[in-house]
Design a protein around this nucleic acid. Structure first.
Lengths: 355, 355
DNA sequence: ACAGCGTATCGAATCGATTCGATTTCCCGA
DNA sequence: TCGGGAAATCGAATCGATTCGATACGCTGT
């Protein structure tokens, strides 16, 4: 309205002059770092209002204090890819919470090839960085961050020693759910896995294929199940979605002669797809086939079922990352955390059907 | 490793001294704004490497140039609320694209009560702001932004004149899909709406109820359908999800005596829920009941069906917002855009069943 | 040999706040 | 009446780069 195209916006110095105080005093009025008399404070505020001054310029303040109040989150590839996973969202929310105590905002960065020469990470005014799902190009991001000397935390990824990381006890949790199924009497089970690497290839997984798998989550969850069912067959999905689960589920349940009595999916979305596949084929869950998931997210549209699954503390992952960042910013040393999943018994697993 | 706890990180001046050039020259080597001889450039780079200097400090650079390369996106409430809507994600992706030409990152801000006195928006070093779904508290955000004199764009919300906005032709698009259903011969139709206001109350909507509705999208899409079907009955869902659609669908399709031949849902997720409700009741889609959605997002898990819907240019919304921001930052004036949805004929609508 | 010119580099001002030691003010007790 | 000390305010340095007019240098054409 009135302040949009002035020749120059008012600065703190202008306000101070207008109020008849030094700029140091004016500064303190806004930051509250020191006591100022009420009368002075009032005069400064009045002057600010008169000049249309809306508080200290964040850029200048940042330079002086060395803090921008921004934490970068580096996601792989397109945002849509990252946010397709329903776990990501509560995690981000948790991160926002964990960072809130710092009053820090979240800067979304894609670790893209970066057309304009330097990746955004080089030139972004951030106080710290959170790397999610460290792999491939994220590695480069890490190098940049290290050379800038920024505090960094890695969520679900390995970035070498010295970098604090937040992980999940994927392997142990997977063993837990496998044991649950085993206790129910199941012996013929199948696993629907997440992608093994960037290829996202679907289909049956030969045991030797695991050697070239790079996605840690997938490998760990598989290894966990293997402890209980060393010979379980596995098919890989092309991603974590209901439709992918449906495809995998069909391929597993199609042949009545060779049908597992239980299917362990590596994500809840996949499990939901498998349930749909079972329903399609006229199989009852859990009477004819037991199905378990992983993650413990709210999956829409599986009707009356409550999925048996391992609930991962998604929001907690984010909060923990935020907390570690906060520590590092205070100069304390951060530590790595391995969060534990908790078993949730649902209605989708039951005793092995009488043959 | 080596640069983590030095007494002081190297500055551009240090590098310049080490290389035996002036700091202005050193600056130019990194920014590339002016020609520098190869030999000088090389000397500077070598000096930088020797001192472990990783490029100009973004904070200092920002102060001088007045640009931080960051655009804030203000979301209402929890992140999870905002990202639950599958339209949000491609939109953010589009925004990221639209902003990429500026090399700008996206700062996620929640318009919270803001415990620590000033909301983050006051102190965030941003170049511009995108407000999403302007309502209630977002209004305050707008005031802050205005007083800071920052360029701002509103997506799907009204922020008064002078603020460029990106909108959808919701009303017209809704009319289009209603006409499609009308052309198929349907006369008894029902609408499943998105929430009418913050209450998110479920259930039948009395015509007078519309007067107090505050969510623009809901009202517009309803009004659009009303042009074709003035007497259509409407039920409100408690949100945009498959489960909410299921609930609404059951209530509409339950009674065979009083069953609409077509259901128009205000979102694809709701439509998916209605489809499930129909299937539950043994109704075939579209033979027994036609169902249409809105949005054109990829909905997982409705099996072989392709939803008849209005495809909204979600990514384009974000891209357009990004483009307008870019214009404002270049000093040009931005304009409001009303994007159009396109009809997609699917397999979920068909001729009205013979009675 | 020199005016004229293009190129590479330099100097110094500037961006707008924060910070902390120094200074002033004022009140109280001896 | 004056010294002592707490409270409020001031001054000046500082954060680390960018920018642009000025300068120096080496060529070319006549």
């Amino acid at each position: 309205m009135d302040s949009s195209d002035n020749p120059r916006r008012a600065t703190l110095a202008d306000v101070a002059r207008e109020a008849g105080v030094s700029s140091s005093t004016a500064s303190v009025v806004f930051s509250g770092k020191t006591k100022v008399s009420d009368v002075t404070s009032e005069r400064v505020r009045a002057a600010a209002a008169a000049l249309g001054y809306s508080g200290p310029d964040p850029l200048a303040a940042s330079l002086r204090t060395g803090r921008s109040g921004i934490v970068a989150v580096v996601l792989e590839g397109q945002l849509r890819t990252a946010f397709l996973d329903p776990v990501t969202i509560p995690m981000m929310d948790g991160l926002a919470d964990g960072l809130a105590s710092l009053g820090a905002g979240i800067l979304l960065l894609r670790d893209e090839p970066g057309e304009a020469g330097a990746p955004a990470l080089t030139t972004a005014p951030v106080d710290a960085v959170v790397l999610i799902g460290c792999s491939g190009r994220t590695r480069e991001s890490l190098d940049i961050v290290r050379s800038r000397g920024l505090p960094v935390v890695v969520i679900e990824g390995d970035a070498g020693e010295e970098v604090p990381r937040i992980t999940l006890d994927n392997r142990h949790a997977a063993t837990g759910i496998a044991r649950h199924v085993h206790d129910l009497g199941h012996r013929e089970i199948a696993i629907v896995t997440l992608p093994l690497d960037g290829d996202r290839q679907r289909g049956h997984i030969e045991p030797t294929r695991w050697e070239s798998a790079t996605v840690e989550v997938t490998v760990d969850r598989f290894a966990g199940v293997s402890e209980v069912f060393p010979d379980a067959r596995a098919v890989s999905a092309g991603g974590s979605s209901i439709d992918e689960g449906l495809i995998a589920g069909r391929s597993l349940l199609d042949d009545p002669a060779d049908r597992p009595t239980a299917v362990l999916a590596q994500s809840d979305l996949l499990a939901a797809g498998v349930i749909r596949a079972a329903e399609e084929l006229g199989l009852r869950v859990p009477e004819d086939v037991s199905i378990a998931g992983f993650d413990g997210v709210a999956v829409d549209g599986i009707g009356p079922h409550v999925l048996t699954t391992m609930v991962q503390p998604a929001a907690e992952k984010g909060r923990a990352a935020g907390a570690q960042i906060a520590r590092m910013l205070r100069g304390e040393t951060a530590e790595s955390l391995d969060l534990v999943c908790t078993f949730r018994a649902g209605t989708t697993t039951g005793p092995v059907p009488a043959r």
